[in-house]
């Protein structure tokens, strides 16, 4: 009973830091999806150079552990900026480095799932669009994309949950997110109540991931429902 009380107490202390986790995750998901979209386009482009570049990029990113990516960006980018643009970015909010690292990480699986979703839509859909006079872009945007979106949704949710978990490494470069907060709580208690603290943390991640799954299935259901309404 005491443990439960403790966990609830820790939940209260951890939750304020959820902002950081959410900002980092949401920004990386949005930016990573956009980058993934570009990569998917590169993978399917007619240019061999673009295709090879995209493939190499994705295979490198996929092979890079998140923590290494975060360190590479955190230590490497200021150096690059210094050498190439003669700009000092040491003073940047550290959160930006995490967002950049996670964006890069997220773009790889995103590009793969966008590409496969796109390929699952029959070529005939594009041809039908062209034959009613729409441009390739109009057809893509109005016909292909909405269908590919539904196909991609479950895998997308998976990638989002993975990203959330990778985001738990944010603390490693000194951003005070929920994980860092948990470490502080444990330190303040001289190492006591560690497992209750981390249980509280795990609970929060579990609820977020449940919320993502629920959100996705709601969107899916609303699509199915739309198909089923037959107004007479």
């Amino acid at each position: 009973m005491d443990n439960i009380k403790l966990i609830i107490n820790f939940l209260g202390q951890l939750l304020p830091a959820i902002n950081i986790t959410l900002i980092v995750s949401l920004s990386s998901i949005i930016l990573g999806s956009l980058l993934g979209l570009l990569l998917a386009a590169a993978k399917m482009s007619e240019s061999v150079v673009l295709r090879v570049l995209a493939r190499v990029y994705v295979s490198v990113i996929r092979a890079t552990p998140s923590i290494i990516m975060i360190f590479v960006v955190y230590y490497g980018m200021p150096m690059l900026f210094n050498n190439w643009f003669h700009t000092n970015i040491d003073g940047w909010n550290r959160m930006y480095f995490v967002i950049i690292a996670l964006t890069v990480l997220f773009s790889a699986p995103a590009s793969e799932l966008f590409r496969s979703a796109h390929e699952s839509i029959s070529k005939g859909q594009m041809e039908a669009g062209l034959m009613v006079g729409m441009t390739p872009f109009q057809t893509f945007y109005r016909i292909i994309l909405p269908q590919a979106f539904v196909v991609a949704l479950p895998n997308f949710a998976n990638s989002v949950v993975n990203l959330l978990k990778e985001g738990a490494l944010t603390f490693t470069i000194g951003v005070v997110d929920m994980v860092a907060k948990a470490q502080m709580i444990v330190a303040n208690n001289s190492g006591g109540y560690a497992w209750q603290t981390y249980c509280a943390l795990a609970l929060i991640y579990w609820v977020i991931s449940l919320a993502v799954d629920k959100g996705v299935s709601l969107v899916e259901k609303s699509y199915q429902a739309k198909r089923k309404t037959i107004a007479v």
């Binding site: 859909q125 041809e127 039908a128 062209l130 034959m131 269908q147």
Partner: peptide, 17 residues
């Protein structure tokens, strides 16, 4: 394209419409 119509063997209706 604006002056032709095309009826496909496998219909190719827009599935989301």
């Amino acid at each position: 394209r604006r002056n032709v119509g095309f009826v496909f063997q496998n219909y190719n209706l827009f599935n989301n419409k």
